[in-house]
């Protein structure tokens, strides 16, 4: 429906003019207040007694340029770990969630196991899982595995922890699908697994895209923790450069790169959530 091409009444014209004026005013106000705020922060910082030293050791341009190649190399490793972990997490998270829905008595032990797993790893700090996996598995001295690269152990640890979170998200999604959808599917003769795969899961997954995106953003940060296992990722790369120059700028650089990496995902997540909620309730935003 295109209202713009329609004749509009004088009353509507007046309303539109007024709104336009209001919009212009609010743009100016927000611009001015932003500038004022930035100025206060900036001069406030510059006025602190230690600022010169901090600037030297955290925001040193030359050091940043020198450290850049190694940090960016490390970031590529983080990215690879992220992609691998994300795919594995989706798979195992969904698997755990589906196991949780199996009501038949045969599956009782499996279901209890899955529940216990989720409880355990939702509670256990990721860093401890990283240490246990990273130093425990090599400690088993499984010769046939050879020497496992630190990033692989990191992927394993991230997958173990995040699958627990994500399975809870999927479980909530599955439960939010109206029970008569499942009954309708079964009454058409679809088997349990068919109705799960063709009817329940597609609807559940759609509903949980926004919370899944949040977990993905968290994972995107947490891939930086694989550095504790000695993988030369962005954080570890920065650490090496920090030691070399006795200057903290590489950490700032690595942090900045992580943020830059996260921003598109965060924006995407916002947009997806907005689209989902607008589809659920159409109306004016107040």
């Amino acid at each position: 429906m295109d209202l713009n091409n329609q004749e509009i009444s004088q009353a509507e014209q007046k309303r539109r003019d007024y709104r336009k004026q209001q919009r212009k005013r609010s743009v100016w106000i927000s611009l001015a207040s932003t500038l004022a705020f930035a100025a206060i922060v900036w001069f406030g910082l510059l006025a602190t007694p230690g600022w010169d030293r901090v600037e030297q050791s955290f925001f040193n341009w030359d050091v940043a340029v020198e450290a850049f190649p190694r940090v960016i190399d490390g970031l590529l490793l983080n990215l690879r770990v992220l992609v691998a972990a994300a795919i594995l997490v989706l798979f195992f998270g969904l698997l755990l969630a589906v196991i949780g829905t199996l009501k038949a008595p045969v599956f009782f032990p499996l279901r209890v196991l899955a529940k216990g797993y989720v409880d355990l790893f939702r509670g256990l700090p990721l860093i401890i899982v990283l240490y246990l996996v990273g130093f425990g598995i090599p400690g088993l001295r499984l010769e046939f595995l050879g020497r496992i690269p630190a990033e692989v152990l990191g992927i394993a640890a991230l997958t173990i922890t995040y699958s627990a979170y994500v399975s809870e998200v999927f479980r909530a999604g599955i439960e939010s699908v109206h029970s008569s959808q499942r009954l309708a599917a079964r009454s058409l003769g679809l088997s349990y697994s068919q109705s799960m795969r063709l009817v329940v899961l597609p609807q559940a997954v759609r509903k949980v895209v926004p919370p899944l995106m949040n977990d993905f953003i968290a994972l995107q940060k947490d891939v930086g923790l694989i550095s504790v296992l000695g993988a030369i990722d962005a954080v570890r790369g920065a650490q090496i450069e920090v030691a070399k120059f006795a200057n903290f700028t590489p950490y700032v650089l690595a942090g900045l790169l992580f943020v830059l990496l996260a921003i598109p995902t965060i924006r995407l997540a916002d947009r997806i959530s907005a689209r989902f909620s607008s589809r659920e309730q159409q109306g004016v935003s107040l």
């Binding site: 109206h178 008569s180 959808q181 009954l183 309708a184 599917a185 079964r186 009454s187 058409l188 003769g189 009817v199 597609p202 609807q203 759609r206």
Partner: peptide, 16 residues
């Protein structure tokens, strides 16, 4: 079940 059709009050159709 494939030989017995069943239709409920509401929420029959698959939304996706």
């Amino acid at each position: 079940r494939a030989q017995i059709g069943l239709v409920f009050q509401s929420f029959n159709l698959f939304g996706h």
